[in-house]
Protein backbone atom coordinates (compact mmCIF):
# COMPACT_ATOMS: atom_id res chain seq x y z
CA UNK A 1 0.00 0.00 0.00
CA UNK A 2 1.44 3.35 -1.07
CA UNK A 3 1.29 5.98 1.68
CA UNK A 4 2.67 9.43 2.25
CA UNK A 5 2.98 11.76 5.19
CA UNK A 6 5.19 13.98 7.23
CA UNK A 7 5.58 16.06 10.32
CA UNK A 8 3.14 18.73 11.51
CA UNK A 9 5.07 21.83 10.38
CA UNK A 10 5.71 20.49 6.87
CA UNK A 11 9.50 20.35 7.05
CA UNK A 12 9.61 16.55 6.69
CA UNK A 13 7.74 14.75 3.88
CA UNK A 14 8.01 11.13 2.85
CA UNK A 15 6.48 8.38 0.75
CA UNK A 16 6.50 4.70 1.64
CA UNK A 17 5.22 1.35 0.50
CA UNK A 18 3.82 -0.39 3.56
CA UNK A 19 2.22 -3.73 4.36
CA UNK A 20 -1.06 -2.98 6.23
CA UNK A 21 -0.64 -6.31 8.06
CA UNK A 22 2.48 -4.94 9.78
CA UNK A 23 0.98 -2.23 11.95
CA UNK A 24 1.93 -2.67 15.60
CA UNK A 25 0.92 -1.06 18.89
CA UNK A 26 3.82 -0.74 21.32
CA UNK A 27 3.02 -0.25 25.02
CA UNK A 28 6.64 0.00 26.21
CA UNK A 29 7.44 2.76 28.66
CA UNK A 30 9.81 4.46 26.21
CA UNK A 31 6.98 4.76 23.68
CA UNK A 32 4.71 6.15 26.39
CA UNK A 33 7.24 8.81 27.33
CA UNK A 34 8.30 9.76 23.82
CA UNK A 35 4.78 9.96 22.38
CA UNK A 36 3.46 11.69 25.50
CA UNK A 37 0.47 9.36 25.41
CA UNK A 38 -0.48 5.79 26.30
CA UNK A 39 1.23 3.91 23.46
CA UNK A 40 2.76 4.33 20.05
CA UNK A 41 1.65 2.74 16.79
CA UNK A 42 4.07 2.02 13.97
CA UNK A 43 3.98 0.56 10.49
CA UNK A 44 7.00 -1.64 9.77
CA UNK A 45 8.44 -0.66 6.42
CA UNK A 46 11.61 -1.97 4.72
CA UNK A 47 14.13 0.89 4.57
CA UNK A 48 14.29 0.52 0.77
CA UNK A 49 10.55 1.26 0.61
CA UNK A 50 10.82 4.51 2.57
CA UNK A 51 11.68 7.68 0.66
CA UNK A 52 12.38 10.98 2.36
CA UNK A 53 11.10 13.67 -0.04
CA UNK A 54 12.00 16.79 1.90
CA UNK A 55 13.55 18.00 5.12
CA UNK A 56 16.44 17.08 7.37
CA UNK A 57 15.38 15.04 10.39
CA UNK A 58 17.26 14.94 13.68
CA UNK A 59 18.26 11.66 15.33
CA UNK A 60 18.20 10.80 19.02
CA UNK A 61 19.67 7.44 19.99
CA UNK A 62 18.13 5.55 22.88
CA UNK A 63 19.10 2.13 24.20
CA UNK A 64 16.26 -0.33 23.75
CA UNK A 65 15.27 -3.03 26.23
CA UNK A 66 17.28 -5.43 24.04
CA UNK A 67 20.41 -3.41 24.78
CA UNK A 68 20.71 -2.26 21.17
CA UNK A 69 20.92 1.35 20.10
CA UNK A 70 17.71 2.60 18.54
CA UNK A 71 17.57 5.77 16.47
CA UNK A 72 14.56 8.00 17.06
CA UNK A 73 14.18 10.21 14.01
CA UNK A 74 12.18 13.41 14.42
CA UNK A 75 11.61 16.85 12.95
CA UNK A 76 13.87 19.39 14.68
CA UNK A 77 11.42 22.20 13.92
CA UNK A 78 8.16 20.85 15.38
CA UNK A 79 9.30 17.76 17.31
CA UNK A 80 7.09 15.30 15.42
CA UNK A 81 8.63 11.83 15.54
CA UNK A 82 8.76 10.18 12.12
CA UNK A 83 10.33 6.73 12.49
CA UNK A 84 12.74 4.57 14.48
CA UNK A 85 15.63 2.57 13.02
CA UNK A 86 18.76 0.66 13.99
CA UNK A 87 22.07 2.46 13.33
CA UNK A 88 24.11 1.27 10.38
CA UNK A 89 23.49 0.45 6.75
CA UNK A 90 22.24 -3.15 7.04
CA UNK A 91 18.83 -3.65 5.41
CA UNK A 92 16.12 -3.37 8.05
CA UNK A 93 12.53 -2.37 8.73
CA UNK A 94 11.86 1.18 9.88
CA UNK A 95 9.09 1.74 12.45
CA UNK A 96 7.10 4.52 10.81
CA UNK A 97 4.86 6.38 13.28
CA UNK A 98 1.26 5.84 12.26
CA UNK A 99 0.13 9.34 13.25
CA UNK A 100 2.33 10.86 10.56
CA UNK A 101 0.80 8.74 7.76
CA UNK A 102 -1.87 10.64 5.85
CA UNK A 103 -3.80 7.42 5.10
CA UNK A 104 -3.80 6.32 8.76
CA UNK A 105 -7.61 5.98 8.93
CA UNK A 106 -7.27 3.03 6.53
CA UNK A 107 -4.82 1.24 8.81
CA UNK A 108 -5.60 -0.87 11.85
CA UNK A 109 -3.04 -2.42 14.19
CA UNK A 110 -2.70 -6.18 13.85
CA UNK A 111 -0.78 -6.89 17.05
CA UNK A 112 0.28 -5.38 20.35
CA UNK A 113 3.69 -5.68 21.99
CA UNK A 114 5.06 -4.86 25.46
CA UNK A 115 1.53 -5.26 26.78
CA UNK A 116 2.88 -5.87 30.29
CA UNK A 117 3.41 -2.14 30.68
CA UNK A 118 0.13 -1.08 29.02
CA UNK A 119 -1.83 1.67 30.74
CA UNK A 120 -4.72 0.14 32.67
CA UNK A 121 -7.47 2.10 30.87
CA UNK A 122 -6.58 1.52 27.22
CA UNK A 123 -9.12 -1.29 26.71
CA UNK A 124 -11.95 0.82 28.15
CA UNK A 125 -12.09 3.90 25.95
CA UNK A 126 -15.76 3.22 25.23
CA UNK A 127 -16.52 3.96 28.90
CA UNK A 128 -14.81 7.36 28.99
CA UNK A 129 -17.30 10.19 28.36
CA UNK A 130 -17.07 11.94 25.01
CA UNK A 131 -17.42 15.74 24.97
CA UNK A 132 -18.14 16.89 21.44
CA UNK A 133 -17.48 20.60 21.92
CA UNK A 134 -14.36 21.08 24.00
Amino acid sequence: MQVDGGCHCGHINYEAEIDPEKVVICHCTDCQTMSGTAFRVSARVPDSDFHLLSGTPKTYIKIGASGRDREQVFCPECGTHIYAAYPGSEPQDFSLRLGTIRQRAQLKPTRQIWHGSAQAWVNDLAHIPVVENP
Partner: peptide
Protein backbone atom coordinates in the same frame (compact mmCIF):
# COMPACT_ATOMS: atom_id res chain seq x y z
CA UNK B 1 -3.91 8.48 36.13
CA UNK B 2 -6.85 7.63 33.90
CA UNK B 3 -8.62 9.89 31.42
CA UNK B 4 -11.98 11.31 32.47
CA UNK B 5 -13.20 12.63 29.13
CA UNK B 6 -12.49 12.46 25.41
CA UNK B 7 -12.54 15.39 22.98
CA UNK B 8 -12.49 15.66 19.17
CA UNK B 9 -13.95 12.16 19.07
CA UNK B 10 -15.30 12.67 15.54
CA UNK B 11 -11.76 12.21 14.21
CA UNK B 12 -10.98 9.20 16.44
CA UNK B 13 -9.36 6.26 14.69
CA UNK B 14 -12.06 3.61 14.22
CA UNK B 15 -10.21 0.84 16.08
CA UNK B 16 -9.39 2.63 19.35
CA UNK B 17 -12.36 1.16 21.24
CA UNK B 18 -11.37 -2.35 20.26
CA UNK B 19 -7.88 -2.84 21.65
CA UNK B 20 -9.13 -5.92 23.49
CA UNK B 21 -9.59 -7.63 20.11
CA UNK B 22 -6.05 -6.98 18.80
CA UNK B 23 -3.69 -9.90 19.45
CA UNK B 24 -1.08 -9.40 22.14
CA UNK B 25 2.41 -10.77 21.44
CA UNK B 26 4.43 -10.86 24.64
Amino acid sequence: LSPKRQIWHRSAQPWVNGLGDIPVVE
